[in-house]
């Protein structure tokens, strides 16, 4: 336990030591943007400067914070449902190979339909409530999880599988003791992709019709040429994605302690 703590400490130090590089690049880009928008005298409705965006972000916090919470809530609900559906599909398709053969192509087809096309249809069928929005997020979230998890199951080490079978393990024991823990790193790869998709899915679903959310705020800002507000929305979408991503990496570190740092 002590050794583990010290190793996480070292990792954090490394992150701090290396983290300044991207931060520096971002700061330099912002400075460049600020200077050019002042020197070239670009109108605010076309491209607001970073300071103008920041000022808007701070002063109108009270006006848009409910949009922010609404989108966060929607993303989390959609993400949880999407991930559960994805995991469930992966487990079913893995345990029942004939079902996998029948449904796998359908799974891929479901991703070929652009979400922008599908979303209005869902609104026609289910109205403007929460249901069509959650459905959209689920649709974009479940696929990365399902595919990554299935791949994780299928890549189970053959020798370990032989060992378990010859030791007399049942199908259920093989699944619980071998295949599921083996697929855990793959599941986390899927989770990271799904997390960012869920925010995107939430914003898209809000464009279609909602009374609050970052998507609504963005549409309103855009139609009244408040470009600074559009940028505020973009910044918060990025922050939300980063927070989700960070939470999942933290969970991964917690659950997959055994992973060899240099690889087996």
């Amino acid at each position: 336990m002590l050794a583990l703590n010290s190793s996480t400490l070292v990792q954090m130090k490394n992150m701090l030591a290396q983290g300044w590089r991207p931060v520096l690049v971002i700061i330099l880009l912002l400075i460049l943007w600020e200077i050019s928008s002042r020197l070239l005298d670009i109108p605010t409705w076309l491209l607001p400067s970073p300071t103008e965006i920041a000022r808007e972000g701070v002063t109108s916090w009270a006006n848009y914070q409910h949009h922010l919470f609404s989108t966060t809530k929607l993303s989390v609900i959609g993400f949880v449902i999407g991930v559960s559906v994805g995991l469930l599909i992966a487990v079913i398709l893995h345990l029942l190979p004939t079902v996998r053969q029948a449904f796998y192509p359908l799974l891929i087809l479901s991703q070929n339909i652009p979400i922008i096309v599908l979303a209005p249809l869902l609104v026609i069928w289910f109205g403007f409530g929460v249901l069509p929005k959650v459905l959209i997020i689920t649709l974009v979230c479940f696929f990365p999880i399902a595919v990554a998890t299935l791949d994780g199951f299928r890549q189970t080490n053959q020798e370990l599988l032989h060992y378990m079978r010859m030791a007399g393990a049942t199908k259920g024991q093989i699944f619980r003791k071998l295949e599921l823990p083996h697929a855990l790193p793959s599941i986390f790869s899927g989770l990271k992709i799904s997390a960012t998709y869920s925010v995107m899915g939430a914003v898209i679903s809000e464009w279609l019709g909602a009374n609050q959310g970052i998507g609504v705020y963005m549409t309103l800002a855009q139609s009244s040429f408040r470009t600074d507000r559009v940028f505020v929305a973009i910044v918060f979408i990025m922050i939300l994605c980063l927070v989700f991503f960070g939470l999942i990496i933290a969970l991964e570190k917690l659950l997959i302690k055994w992973r060899a740092t240099e690889g087996e």
């Binding site: 020798e159 060992y163 030791a167 823990p181 855990l184 997959i256 055994w258």
Partner: peptide, 12 residues
């Protein structure tokens, strides 16, 4: 009881 060529230990 069988042990394959590689030790086949569960890494986790």
């Amino acid at each position: 009881s069988y042990t394959p060529q590689s030790p086949s230990l569960l890494p986790w």
